[in-house]
């Protein structure tokens, strides 16, 4: 039955091919050239069964190889790669997030450190200023004390010097009197006179 239909079809196809050939001039020419050999070899229906048979055999073989071996193998590899790529992208994205977090943390730490340093500097400056002030005050106090003591000592020495000056003057006056007049004057009298002179002279 197959053979029957094959030959029936082959007649029609012969017609088809002849018309196809007629449609394009270049084939018409080749057809004419090949005409000597009994027409186109493609239209020789006796070769049709073998061609169809081997077409079926080879195509079924190919189909089986494709669907059982080749296609699963290729799609496996492609899927695996797709998964791997997605994984890699996932990892990259995750690491990027982590890196961003670390960066934010780092920036925060830097900012903290900076403000802390600022505070420290200010505190140190304040402390220095404070200690400066106390030291100054102390120094001023000390200076004042020293000055006072020195003044006191000067005053003391001055009175002392004045005292000694009085006695020296009295002695000198008494001696001078003796030398000039030969009169011996009592110490008390001389002292009184010197004092009066000094006060008057002063």
């Amino acid at each position: 039955m197959i053979a029957n239909s094959v030959t029936r079809w082959s007649r029609r196809i012969g017609l088809a091919a002849a018309m196809a050939a007629a449609a394009v001039p270049s084939w018409a020419a080749t057809d004419a050239q090949g005409g000597g050999g009994g027409g186109l070899p493609q239209l020789d229906a006796t070769t049709y069964p073998t061609q169809i048979f081997w077409l079926i055999v080879s195509f079924i073989l190919l189909y089986v190889i494709m669907s059982k071996v080749a296609i699963p193998r290729i799609s496996d590899v492609l899927e695996e790669r797709q998964e791997r790529i997605e994984d890699d992208i996932e990892t990259a994205d995750r690491l990027r997030g982590e890196a961003e977090a670390v960066k934010a943390e780092y920036e925060k730490a830097v900012a903290d450190a900076r403000s802390e340093a600022h505070a420290l500097v200010r505190k140190a400056m304040d402390e220095i200023a404070a200690s400066h002030a106390t030291a100054e005050a102390e120094a001023a106090k000390k200076t004042a004390e020293t000055t006072k003591a020195a003044e006191a000592r000067i005053a003391e020495q001055r009175t002392e010097a004045l005292e000694s000056l009085k006695s020296v003057a009295s002695e000198a006056a008494a001696e001078a009197t003796v030398k000039l007049t030969g009169i011996k004057v009592s110490d008390a009298k001389v002292g009184k006179a010197v004092e009066a002179a000094m006060q008057g002279g002063a």
Binding site: A3, T46, T47, P49, T50, Q51, F53, W54, L55, V57, S58, F59, L61, L62, I65
Partner: peptide, 17 residues
Amino acid sequence: GMDISFTNSALFMILAT
């Protein structure tokens, strides 16, 4: 009753497969 001899055409079909 059908000729299914191996031919040059069949050879290249198998070769393509």
